[in-house]
């Protein structure tokens, strides 16, 4: 609350050109602090076992070794795990968006007792964790002959993320003034066309965020694939990770190396898509 002409104001004016860079520095610090556990995971995968549990923790690997990485690639078909993970998560994302779009749009536009009840139900069905749901689900999948297929895992995982997608997309649609669509319809544009040409583009921020989060949720799912599929060569990465968590002990450098390799492609993918994602998330995208 400095008055015009005060000393503080002068300093502020002098610093003004620096401000963006100071903010960037702050952002880097925030990200660094926040990502510290991730850093810890990566350096731990580069440490040999005794150093990993040293009484005085080492901030960087004093004797870095790639042994864990060599070991996991020698032992496991890492590529196949990643491929299975990719197939499952992309399919889940696609299926979720298809199912969620219609439902979210309808629930945003129609307000009756029944749609309200639907929203309550959709919110509430998310509460039980997969271990408690998977047994009865297995019964269903066996009835329709889907046990031991990735399709069953895709369907099961979709149930976990679909409610989230409906609720968030519904919020996005609800924020788009219905007058925009109506104006288009007055011009003779059918609702269908109005939806795809006006509503959907306006909801793109919601879509970008929801699909990223759905993808990541599906990418990490463990209980469904383990419970619904028996064959190792169908399994995604999180199940592979457990190969290193033995019955009696966990080989942590190996497990962490695997986890690092497991998340790396997603980070790379993010780097590539970053520009697109950013443009969707820029303030004031909706004008």
């Amino acid at each position: 609350m400095s008055r015009p002409g005060s000393a503080g104001d002068g300093v502020r004016r002098a610093l003004a050109p620096l401000r963006p860079w100071l903010l960037t520095a702050g952002g880097v610090v925030i990200a660094a602090v926040y990502l510290f556990p991730v850093y810890w995971m990566v350096i731990s995968s580069l440490k040999a076992n005794p150093e990993l549990f040293a009484a005085t923790p080492t901030l960087y690997p004093h004797a870095p070794t790639l042994a864990a990485f060599r070991w996991i690639f020698a032992r496991e078909n890492v590529g196949l795990y990643l491929q299975n993970s990719a197939i499952i998560s992309f399919s889940v994302t696609a299926l979720t968006l298809v199912l969620a779009t219609g439902a979210a749009y309808a629930l945003a536009r129609i307000r009756t007792f029944w749609t309200a009840a639907m929203v309550v139900a959709i919110m509430a069905v998310q509460v039980l964790p997969p271990p408690l749901l998977v047994t009865p689900m297995f019964v269903i999948f066996r009835q329709i002959g889907l046990v031991n297929t990735q399709f069953a895992v895709i369907l099961a995982t979709t149930t976990k993320v679909l409610p989230f997608a409906i609720i968030m997309l519904r919020t996005s649609f609800a924020q788009i003034p219905v007058e925009l669509e109506e104006a288009a319809r007055v011009d003779g544009c059918p609702r269908f066309v109005a939806f795809f040409h006006i509503t959907l583009p306006l909801a793109r921020t919601g879509y970008i965020v929801v699909s990223s989060l759905v993808f990541l949720l599906a990418y990490g799912e463990f209980v469904y694939p383990l419970s619904l599929m028996n064959h190792k060569d169908l399994q995604p990465g999180p199940v592979g990770l457990y190969s290193f968590i033995g019955a009696d002990f966990a080989d942590w450098p190996d497990a962490l190396a695997f986890a690092t390799v497991f998340v790396a492609p997603v980070i790379v993918l993010y780097m590539f898509l970053q520009r697109r994602i950013v443009s969707g998330l820029t303030a004031g995208a909706l004008k």
Binding site: R75, N230, Y242, S243, F244, I245, G246, A247, D248, F249, D251, D254
Partner: peptide, 10 residues
């Protein structure tokens, strides 16, 4: 069909 606990530790 055999479900086992064998991993790299066993």
């Amino acid at each position: 069909s055999l479900w086992h606990i064998f991993g790299y530790s066993t």
